[in-house]
Design a protein around this nucleic acid. Structure first.
Lengths: 105, 105
DNA sequence: AAAACATATTGACAATCGTCAATATGTTGA
DNA sequence: TCAACATATTGACGATTGTCAATATGTTTT
């Protein structure tokens, strides 16, 4: 598992186009041409560039299937990065996953 | 209460110097000259600039006391922004504040 | 092997950003 | 009011970034 430091994470998500792509990839796998189509008006090289930034920050999963390359958002990675930000910049308020609440009681 | 959108938040924290300043301001009030002193090697105008960015993003509290202006990190704002990021980009894993767990049972 | 398709890379350009020196603004105390 | 101090703003500069057109790489199909 790769660790993404807070600055790298912040830089990776600090662009509107990139956040729109992240939204598209949040809950489904999409190939590059589908992303280009849904983004409407953004060129394929630009999309590939943004995907590279997200990939290098460890925020997307990649799968090759024939000629196409599919991407999806790595929600776990996002959650870990946000957790790090919270620990560092909001230590006064600690958060825990809802999925663990059952175990508490 | 002001709302900070995820892109503005990300841009605000997408710089190493700025995150260092945020660390300094995380748990105490500091005036500008103290920040300059602790950052060592960064000029006062640069620090003022970074503080302005954080202020415009709603991430710091400000208080004037005589000639000096004190800043502190707004942990609540950071927590809200991280929460928004989690909702948008990690909807599969929901987190809640520890402080609210008592109320659940 | 060649053609067709999907994606990545390169090169160029404008726009944004981080930084500092110089200066302006604002506040206190003599 | 004036001098001293603290912070903010301006202007300039190099570095980084987002974007696209053109091209390269990689994969499948004929």
């Amino acid at each position: 598992m790769m660790i993404t430091d807070p600055v790298t994470f912040a830089k990776a998500i600090a662009d509107d186009t990139r956040q729109q792509v992240m939204n598209l990839l949040c809950c489904e796998w999409l190939c590059v041409s589908d992303i280009v189509e849904r983004m409407g008006g953004v060129s394929q090289p630009t999309i590939s560039h943004h995907l590279a930034v997200l990939r290098e920050a460890g925020l997307v999963n990649t799968r090759r299937d024939g000629k196409q390359v599919f991407y999806s958002l790595d929600q776990e990675a996002v959650a870990v990065c946000c957790g790090t930000l919270l620990q560092r910049f909001a230590p006064g308020r600690q958060y825990i996953p809802v999925s663990q609440i059952e175990l508490v009681g």
